[in-house]
Simulated assay, not measured.
Amino acid sequence: MTTAWIKDPHFGGVKIPKRIQESVKTRITSYAEAHYAGKYTRIEVRFRGHFCYIDAYIEPFVPHEYDPLKCGEMKEEFIERLRNTPLHLCRLRYKGDEEQWSMAFYTYSHNAYEPSVFDHGGFFGTPEEAFQTSAVYLDE
């Protein structure tokens, strides 16, 4: 009987070095500016251990008939709160190769990151491909 090792895209990882953090942040924000300008107010890229998190901030939709009595806060407070609430897009897992990350898509139905594939159907891809895949939230 032989043992086969499988590289699990959603397990393990390597702490992301500072130089790669800076490079990836620039790559993601540049890609967002080039392809999704006007669909967000700002992009936030943050790192923790072997993870890279991508969040977007958008201008909130406020109904014309907004009623502060029903909503429990003034319209201006509501708008400011939503402007400062991140729209979680995805989490990338670094495995040691700057061009091959795994991705977990943020699902609002479970309020959690769920392992995902990229638009091209593979388990590994670039930070730009991860942004493109998860930017579905920006197209609403």
Rank of each mutant, 00 (worst) to 15 (best):
M1I: 01
M1Q: 06
T2W: 06
A4W: 11
W5P: 10
P9E: 11
F11V: 10
G13N: 09
K15W: 12
P17K: 08
R19G: 12
I20S: 05
V24P: 03
K25N: 14
T26N: 07
S30Y: 11
A32S: 05
H35T: 10
H35E: 15
A37G: 09
G38L: 07
R42P: 13
V45P: 01
F47N: 08
R48A: 10
R48Q: 09
G49Y: 02
H50L: 09
Y53H: 03
D55W: 05
D55M: 05
I58N: 10
P60I: 08
P63L: 11
Y66E: 09
D67E: 08
K70T: 13
K70S: 13
C71F: 10
C71E: 14
E73K: 10
E73T: 07
E77R: 14
I79D: 06
R81S: 15
L82Q: 13
L82A: 10
N84G: 11
T85W: 06
L89S: 04
R91C: 08
L92P: 02
K95D: 01
G96I: 03
D97V: 03
D97Q: 01
E99S: 15
Q100E: 11
M103L: 06
A104N: 05
H110Q: 15
N111R: 11
N111S: 14
E114T: 14
F118V: 00
F118Q: 01
D119K: 01
G121I: 10
G122I: 00
G125N: 00
P127R: 00
F131K: 08
A135H: 04
V136H: 12
E140Y: 12
